[in-house]
Design a protein around this nucleic acid. Structure first.
Lengths: 243, 243
DNA sequence: CCCATTAGTTGCAACAAGAAACTATTGGAG
DNA sequence: CTCCAATAGTTTCTTGTTGCAACTAATGGG
């Protein structure tokens, strides 16, 4: 359905010029090579030409039925994955964040397993950058360093009370692998027996047949994530004071 | 700075018609009369004319420096408060949510103390509606019932690991008052001694001089919220398995 | 002065976590 | 074949937290 500008204005009773530029950006995390990494693309256009930025872009109002659909479409375009974990992070909108003026962007964060991704910087200017170190945070376009920092905070926080980390591994994984994901993201070693107790008692993993042989040492039991609809767990939450 | 449409298009390399209508809406909670209530306004225009809706509206690109500023401005306009709690909830954007076509709205949720609000429905069509019961959820315009439900989930969830409930009380409050806020929002009675232990041990409250005399019974100690910058606390978090 | 009422504390059993030592299962060297 | 390194997984014990109930404390009113 095409409208003239006049029709548009009558419909909405607000000038088109009152609308900020609106985009969708993605923070796509993976854990690879023992580091938390994020997908960056090199900007081809001004502003911030040739600097690294989070992938994203404008909505396609014809194709995208919703902001979430748009984010999912862009995620598939960039990574070619099928059923990734995708969650809305936050919307950033201000006059200052883009030198061209008022813009808003809704940012999603995604998690993907590191198998089947390529680490090498490819000619199109796409790169899996380690989140810590290498001054990644200082080199990013727009307010993307700030956005990335927020995403890392959210990711760390959600490790505490959800099972989202399983989306950073392939469908079948072992508990030592899962613990390593936690240790890499939280940047500290965890106690093995406490970690196992908690993850198992939360009851969202199930054993599957087969063991993972890793070259040396005892093979580890394989598990699969079982989504019972329960998204979070608070081991000792206030609502358990119920009498 | 005024631009012609042609300049605009050259800047952004995307048609204006590609931009969805963008608004900011508010879910303003208070606890009053032993119920969790939300501020609703009656719509004066189509669509959903005369139905109740969350307060909100378009950005003012001249006055609002950011989406958050816009939300704060609207909150002050609606409630006249000075330093309320305001947090971004989520952005809802799709072709379906408004019969006029593609729209996006960034929703903030706010908490305010129930003193100095008026409960009576005023002539301008503003109302503090109880969140539960009265079929509020079914009567709302657009997808506002869905948004309200999300806000309630977020509020309940954040009670578990933050102190945001203090923003529903005046600056000086007692622990029994705070516990009652929790019980109203979580819809279940809580154990007194466990509640007090946890809230005090989190270390974000400090005693202040004076006791609250409530007519009958022993007067209660007054407390004040002390914001140490720590926003959340997980009593037993995975990162405490650190070795 | 006693009692109802609400505030706040204490004591204890049950349970969860922290830490370390223990057993189990594999591959590989000799 | 045996032993050892290496990693997985369990057990045990101590310590701390929670659920619960009974207790004390402070106020107003009959």
């Amino acid at each position: 359905m095409e409208l003239t500008e006049a029709e548009f204005l009558r419909c909405y009773n607000v000038s088109l010029y009152e609308r900020p530029s609106f985009t969708v950006d993605l923070v796509i995390f993976t854990v690879c090579d023992e580091q938390l990494r994020v997908l960056l693309v090199r900007r081809a256009e001004h502003p911030f030409k040739d600097q690294w930025a989070l992938p994203g872009g404008f909505l396609d109002l014809q194709r995208d039925d919703s902001v979430e659909n748009c984010a999912m479409r862009k995620l598939v375009e960039k990574t070619g994955m099928r059923a990734p974990y995708l969650e809305q992070l936050k919307t950033y909108g201000s006059r200052e964040r883009d030198p061209r003026g008022w813009t808003a962007t809704t940012v999603y964060f995604a998690l993907m397993a590191s198998n089947s991704i390529s680490l090498a910087e490819d000619p199109e200017g796409v790169r899996w950058a380690p989140v810590q170190g290498e001054g990644v945070d200082k080199a990013l376009a727009f307010d993307h360093a700030h956005i990335l920092a927020d995403a890392v905070v959210r990711l760390r926080s959600k490790l505490e009370y959800t099972h989202i980390a399983v989306h950073l591994l392939s469908e079948a994984f072992t508990l030592p692998e899962l613990q390593q994901i936690y240790e890499i993201i939280l940047q500290q070693p965890l106690d093995k027996s406490s970690f196992r107790r908690r993850v198992i008692q939360a009851g969202m993993l199930e054993e599957i047949a087969g063991k993972l042989r890793d070259g040396s040492g005892r093979p580890a039991q394989l598990y699969r994530f079982r989504d019972y609809g329960r998204k979070t767990f608070f081991p000792r939450s206030i609502s358990r004071y119920a009498r």
